[in-house]
Amino acid sequence: MKKRILVVDDEEGLRLLYKEELEDEGWDVDLAASGEESLERLEKDSIDLVLLDIKMPGMDGVEVLRRVKEKWKDLPVILCTAYPHYKHDFGTWASDAYITKSSDLTELKQTIKEILGKKR
């Protein structure tokens, strides 16, 4: 079974980039343009991992994370942020990884592989 990743980002260009790149790696990719939309998708589809932008208009990534973890405790979430070299211990919010946004997606892909691999 292919794993399905939900990409949540308000930036269209980035959403499409993530989609193409992650599909190339052999994953299925769903897209959501806002926090609200991401929660709807999660209700409908079966998702294996969420890639979550923090800074979004409306419901931001941190709030989405909180709701996701309330409802789907074991669903892995990777938070993306614009702050480089500022790796927070998001442990209190139970995010599974914390990624600095970059045009180089190597680190992101590596992290996804590790998390999905662990679950298998």
Binding site: E11, G13, L14, K101, S102, S103, D104
Partner: peptide, 17 residues
């Protein structure tokens, strides 16, 4: 800085693709 960064990431990402 925030506004420029996102489009920049797309450009860079697509160039790599």
């Amino acid at each position: 800085a925030h506004e420029i960064r996102n489009p920049l990431l797309s450009i860079g990402g697509y160039a790599a693709r």
